[in-house]
Design a binder for these strands. Sequence first.
DNA 1: GGCGCATACTTCGTACGCTAAATATCTTTC
DNA 2: GAAAGATATTTAGCGTACGAAGTATGCGCC
Lengths: 161, 161
Amino acid sequence: MAQAFPRIDPQPDLDAILEAMVYLYTESRRITKSLALAHGLTGPQLVVLKMLEPVGKLSLSALSGRIRAKNSTVTGIIDRMERDGLVVRRRSEEDRRVVHIELTAKGRRLAEETDVEPMQMFRDVLAELGPRDSADLRRILMKLARRVRDVVQTHEGEPPP
Amino acid sequence: MAQAFPRIDPQPDLDAILEAMVYLYTESRRITKSLALAHGLTGPQLVVLKMLEPVGKLSLSALSGRIRAKNSTVTGIIDRMERDGLVVRRRSEEDRRVVHIELTAKGRRLAEETDVEPMQMFRDVLAELGPRDSADLRRILMKLARRVRDVVQTHEGEPPP
DNA sequence: GGCGCATACTTCGTACGCTAAATATCTTTC
DNA sequence: GAAAGATATTTAGCGTACGAAGTATGCGCC
């Protein structure tokens, strides 16, 4: 019964929630982008830089998994970061299919002096919520995410011809 | 004090919320895209089509305002929809700077026979929430959105040199 | 009635972001 | 141990998405 959504009751909250969600996401993204620009970075490049900072290197697949993008997308992002001298590619010795992405000295320096976190605006306003709201929001969003994950999983591997 | 966010207490909920939010948004978008594809549309094209369906025509700016994109982005989307015969551009008589985007017969037919709503997956799981959670979620998100709007407004017009 | 400013849209260049197909390497299986 | 299948990455092509600059039109004001 996972795919039956009767829609008997057109909840009035629904559109408002959707609208707020889209607004928050797109606006935060836009602001992150403009903040990153001040350091000569794009939004996704900032995300990659901050992801590499604590660990130094990651495989391309590990990166794409964490930023929820496809490998082909991350290939492009890394191309430009490599062109700008922020990272280098290095073939793994254990598995020669794998490419490790490593921070260069320049990349590390930039990561350190860049105080912006991805989705900074979002974090800022979230931090202003009281503990009650914060916990509620977390609980409800995780519930939604779990449902989506279930539906996606079961619908995997049967696209309409 | 609008820009001072002490970050004294690194709330543990924060990252989980952010993660769930990004997951829900990107996954819903991805699914909408693949559903739209079954009707020969892209995600944004579906959004525009559904937005035009009830009213028939809108100015390009009105469209870009509602889908939270810039005019230059929407110009491209409309270019491709016009190429595919779904809409036509018509200069406004009252204000000759304005371009109205109108559904063609083909566009209207497609809109009618396309049962997918934008962010369908998101709507589906939202509709499963109880009224309590639904109201809470709405209240909290609107509070966040209001704060973002305030911050964006006050920071408008002073980018770093 | 023309000058300056604002608004609506387009064009251009860059950067994602995706799918499908190609390449290279690993793993399994017989 | 070679063929068959799985996995990691890249390439190519298309469609957003943005900012900056350009064009056309409207509007206020002297």
